[in-house]
Write a protein that binds this DNA or RNA. Structure first.
Lengths: 299, 299
DNA sequence: CTGTTAGCGCTTTCAT
DNA sequence: ATGAAAGCGCTAACAG
């Protein structure tokens, strides 16, 4: 020990890894990590993992091909001890690949029929979408538009689709007919602005719009402003996620536990790493409607 | 090759690393990576590095001790081939440690007297601060407040200090006396709101406030709204960074090349990795004043 | 040009 | 208890 200090000796990590077979590294696969909601989840991952002995290598997915690449190569090569996948759904062919990769994998913000093979930390987006729509209906709205991510997307995002499903469910339960012209598909703020403009220039325009994310809600708000509509008197807007911008703008939104989803994902992964016999867990995190200043009864 | 495919053989990365001495891994050290401006820089790093063969391991710093830990352990243990350090200044004792770690290191958003030892991709924050203040002065303001990060902070951030320096320089150049009561220290949005409240309830309140980041500017805007001040008639506000929120709120701000700083940092690192003889580079990225709706002549 | 072997730096097992 | 040696899976240098 004396000599260790004298020579300032530090064990070589790579040799340790080869010898023990543990890489002490975890991979996280995230789509578009600059998106505030994704960053927040990632933050839960990073901060929780920082307390452990594991390193975190990050793989950002912005092209569909990157996704496939990742799913194929990451869990192999014995380069990581485990992986977290955020918001991206593996295809049916990819699931067995992942499950048989030999390392524990946790799906965050994603539920997949491959239950019993992978840990999953999900959110009930159908219930979330229904809750939002129920609230708007309770306020007295019947002409409710929705701006959602494209249902068929190359990344396998499912959150928006589920929220839209909840929306239709709520409508049906209230006996309000579903109007296809009130349904718009688009990604992100800019596109949502265009979608909202279409919605708001309809002959019989909606009195409320449910946006599938807070950033999309911002786009809706901008379109409304451009058209001279007052919020919330002329138009109610609800977002989803409750990221900081929602608080800043006073946006009514559905809060989900973004940070906690990352945290919980890491906890599950670390547990499984310690005890490989751990049964795969399927957890659903709660959501909560946060009412601010962008919603009111229709005038 | 036939057999390779038949057996579905994949080389073991860890063994490769031990054998070649290359880890094919790069570390990035970032403070508070959920901050939008930091995420944007990180995005430049991630996307540029994705094209290379290197993995990225991320170390988030939220406590001063983590910083010291990182600087000591990361470049040792032969666990990474290089490192990027974002916005955090090494102390004078830490610089030699880093430089002698044997791996190339690039400082992003940071200039350090240890020139000639490390690559640096910096921004001229003094000039930026001066430009903002000059603009306010040109509009006719003489009572100009400033909300800045604490100058002495445990992380070694220097950007805010430099911007404040530029502010004083501009004042001096215009012959406007510096008033200490117009200078407030605080981190982030919430604290900035309190700082702005102090400034705006002064007997002779400022007619313009220069915030050291866009998030701090949001806090200033909120304080102004709470006090019933109209923007920009009663108060001009300027931010710094030009993150998305600035665009959304129509905030006048100083744009810096966040994404590009990360990109350039990675490029420099990769070049040095290929050719270790590369001379350390000191680059300064440009800034640009983006005028929107939160600034006007004093009424 | 193909085939063999030493060695990367550690852990772990086995013998002393 | 302490010490020697085998082996993790690859690369690179070497000999055939």
């Amino acid at each position: 020990m004396q000599v260790v200090k004298e020579l300032d000796y530090v064990p070589n990590l790579v040799a340790q890894r080869l010898s023990t077979g543990r890489t002490l590294t975890i991979a996280v696969i995230v789509p578009f990590f600059t998106t505030p909601s994704v960053t927040e989840r990632l933050s839960g991952v990073v901060r929780t993992l920082a307390k452990s002995e594991y390193d975190l290598v990050i793989h950002n997915i912005e092209e569909p091909e990157q996704r496939t690449d990742c799913f194929r190569t990451i869990p192999r090569q014995e380069r990581v001890d485990g992986a977290l996948i955020i918001s991206i759904s593996p295809t049916d062919e990819e699931v067995p690949l992942l499950a048989e990769a030999g390392v524990p994998i946790v799906l965050i913000d994603m539920h997949h029929p491959a239950l019993g093979m992978l840990h999953q930390v999900a959110v009930d987006d159908i219930a979330g979408g229904k809750l939002v729509t129920d609230y708007l209906i309770k306020l007295g709205h019947t002409k409710i538009g929705i701006v959602s991510d494209p249902i068929d997307n190359p990344f396998g995002f499912t959150a928006s689709r589920d929220r839209a499903f909840g929306y239709r469910w709520a409508l049906e339960a209230a006996g309000i007919p579903y109007r296809p012209e009130y349904y718009e598909n688009s990604y992100g703020r800019q596109e949502a602005r265009e979608s909202a403009r279409k919605l708001l220039t309809l002959p019989e325009r909606p009195t409320a719009i449910f946006a599938s994310s807070d950033m999309q809600a911002v786009g809706v708000l901008e379109a409304a402003r451009q058209l001279g509509l007052r919020i919330p008197q002329d138009l109610s807007v609800v977002g989803y996620d409750d990221v900081e911008i929602a608080d800043i703008l006073g946006l009514t939104t559905m809060r989900q536990m973004l940070y906690e989803s990352g945290q919980r994902g890491v906890e599950l992964l670390l547990e499984t790493l310690e005890n490989p016999e751990t049964e795969p867990v399927y957890e659903v995190l709660p959501t909560e409607l946060v009412i601010r200043n962008t919603t009111a009864p229709p005038s």
